[in-house]
């Protein structure tokens, strides 16, 4: 993170990537057919497939893929725990997360996709609806550069609130450390998957959070609650790693159940590689979805 400006950082990351084709998850009035649907009274008769009707004597409505650009909203964790890091082991989680979001936003803007931003800690703090405008990227980068003010994280409450704010279906990129209890998270995530949003989760962790690689005993202070704990890392390390692994496994299982692609990154990883992994994941998901749609249409 040697480049201080977030826009330059994003640009540096994105450079060298080719623009891709995005499919809209919404069907609309475009030229690309997606599926048939049984006519029901009230449907616009303009979309009746007369040829099928003549052939089979049944009324089908032709549905087409919406050709509007991708609507991507970044949901970025601005809680205090994201401020951890900034040492020789890795950059701050917040810097990493914001740079990731900014890079992706830059990239999507290049693709003429609409981008939006929501920041949250205990609740949703900022919400910029996804748009494709000239200054949208600038606005988002500006927001990303503000310092977090929140304390604790309440992921589920923030997601519930965000579900009420977000309108049309689109892509939601959730960037957080996910270091909070997972009890309600699955239900909250299902609000989006059920609504047809294409949710992607990026879990940003600092390398020390993964391996707990400390040497000397110290007073460990929780950055969110301020709680202190005197401990010897050598003695606590093994138990920590086990609990962290269990937490991550539970998180992966939850993502898998909700059909959410999850990316776990550490702030020591080069961002370009992470971005490539992220972008490579999308077409595959889109193909799966396409196949499902086709299958249902054929039936």
């Amino acid at each position: 993170m040697e480049i201080r400006s977030l826009s330059l950082r994003a640009r540096a990351v994105v450079e060298g990537f080719m623009s891709g084709l995005h499919r809209s998850p919404r069907t609309g009035f475009s030229t690309e057919f997606t599926e048939y649907r049984q006519y029901s009274p009230g449907d616009d008769v303009r979309f009746l497939d007369w040829k099928v009707m003549a052939r089979t004597d049944r009324e089908f409505i032709k549905k087409f893929e919406d050709e509007t650009n991708l609507r991507c909203t970044f949901l970025v964790d601005f809680s205090r725990s994201m401020e951890f890091g900034g040492d020789e082991a890795g950059v701050k989680k917040s810097d990493y997360a914001r740079t990731f979001a900014a890079s992706l936003a830059w990239f999507l803007t290049q693709q003429r996709d609409a981008i939006g931003l929501a920041t949250f800690d205990r609740d949703v703090r900022e919400f910029i609806p996804p748009r494709y405008r000239q200054d949208q990227l600038k606005t988002i980068l500006g927001r990303l550069e503000t310092q977090p003010a929140g304390n604790a994280t309440d992921l589920c409450q923030s997601l519930e609130k965000f579900a009420a704010l977000v309108g049309k279906r689109g892509m939601i990129v959730l960037v957080s450390d996910f270091l909070s209890p997972l009890d309600e998270l699955e239900r909250c995530l299902s609000l989006f998957t059920a609504a047809g949003h294409d949710v992607r989760a990026v879990q940003v962790l600092h390398p020390r959070e993964v391996d707990f690689n400390y040497e000397a005993a110290a007073i460990f202070e929780d950055m969110e609650s301020g709680q202190n704990l005197i401990l010897d890392p050598g003695m606590a390390r093994e138990a920590y790693r086990q609990k962290m692994t269990a937490h991550n496994d539970a998180l992966d299982a939850m993502f898998s159940a909700q059909g959410i692609p999850g990316f776990r990154v550490t702030t020591a990883e080069p961002l370009e590689r992470v971005l490539r992994r992220f972008l490579e994941e999308r077409p595959a998901r889109a193909v799966v979805r396409q196949r499902r749609s086709n299958g249902r249409a054929a039936a």
């Binding site: 725990s81 994201m82 951890f84 989680k93 450390d177 270091l179 909070s180 209890p181 600092h206 959070e209 400390y214 000397a216 110290a218 007073i219 460990f220 202070e221 929780d222 950055m223 969110e224 609650s225 709680q227 202190n228 704990l229 005197i230 401990l231 010897d232 003695m235 606590a236 138990a239 920590y240 609990k243 962290m244 937490h247």
Partner: peptide, 14 residues
């Protein structure tokens, strides 16, 4: 010395 840490949820007192 104090060591700020992201979350103590996986730490037990030793």
């Amino acid at each position: 010395n104090k060591q700020p840490f992201g979350s103590l949820m996986f730490l037990d007192k030793t």
